[in-house]
Design a protein around this nucleic acid. Structure first.
Lengths: 173, 173
DNA sequence: CTGTATCCCAGCGGATACTG
DNA sequence: CAGTATCCGCTGGGATACAG
């Protein structure tokens, strides 16, 4: 980097306060899957559609209306999301009604929730909040507020400056 | 809410398995801050630039090169991110060098990390991973893997189907 | 090195109109 | 209700070229 760090290939882990430490190899390929992820849900409508799916929306028209996008856009995004594997289409019919198509979350889609919640949390904190105030997410079992947290498998809450980044199995350096 | 839940206004919290429960008011305004958040970091380059900032990148040229975007785009996004309050510019100079501008994370920017990590995690899990395998994030203090989790303030791990959504203080409706 | 200014194209997304 | 098709303006982002 700026002279001093340029050769920091060996010992590693610079421990920069306030940011993630050490990057050395990872951006040879210029995106650590964030780029790919953004390729799929990197559009406003896509993310919003996923939010709707999380909330239980299943029908085409509801998606379009609730997200506030046109059917054309909804159709396109929805198809992309299905192709990408976040949603799956399935025919269903309520008694006495004709058959309809619904969009259901796949496991892959469901696993996007943490990211969506993290985003929502951030928005609630820093962006002008809507009239009614931000939504409250609660744990149904105990009533406590739900939040997205960064933790380690040993159970610690991990502050950002204690995260070290390394290549996967390569002896953590 | 295909009928049954439509009128679930009173006791609330429909408990739909596999998805977040009950939405009733929240999308009167059609985006629960996810929309606003996407307005800021909803673009590939913006999110990637933030990733770089997390990793400690500070100089203009490094941002452009490492993210793999042109200077023009980098300049534009960077300016937007500064205006939005995620980054701040500051002049600095290394001894013997001329003065330069650097881009530093603000608290607002830093708080985006969980969202970015969640996205990265998701991408690592479901999207074709890069040659070297996904990055390992570890807790420097104990060496354990770091992950983004959804938890409640009482300390429980909260599965997605146990999340209830309600308006903030309004006694959950 | 740190940008700014153009040119330019592809994709997002709104509006409208039209099928099954 | 669930889409598809078309027209169209706005922006994201690559490629140059030029400036402090």
């Amino acid at each position: 980097m700026t002279s001093s760090a340029t050769g920091s290939s060996a010992g590693g882990v610079a421990h920069l306060e306030g940011r993630l430490a050490d990057r050395t190899v990872w951006h040879a390929d210029n995106h650590c899957s964030i780029g790919r992820a953004m390729g799929i849900i990197g559009t406003r409508s896509a993310m919003l559609l996923m939010r709707e799916a999380f909330y239980g929306t299943r029908r085409f028209d509801d998606f379009a209306t609730r997200v506030g996008i046109t059917e054309a856009v909804a159709a396109k995004r929805l198809r992309e999301l299905v192709d990408a594997g976040l949603l799956q289409r399935a025919p269903y019919r309520e008694p006495g009604q004709r058959t309809r198509e619904e969009y259901l979350l796949t496991p892959m889609g469901r696993d996007l929730v943490p990211a969506a919640l993290a985003l929502m949390q951030w928005g609630d904190t820093y962006l002008a909040d809507q009239p009614g105030g931000p939504l409250a997410l609660r744990h149904r079992e105990c009533g406590a507020d739900v939040a997205v947290e960064v933790r380690c498998s040993a159970g610690h809450d991990v502050p950002l400056d204690e995260i070290s980044v390394g290549v996967n199995r390569t002896r953590a350096r």
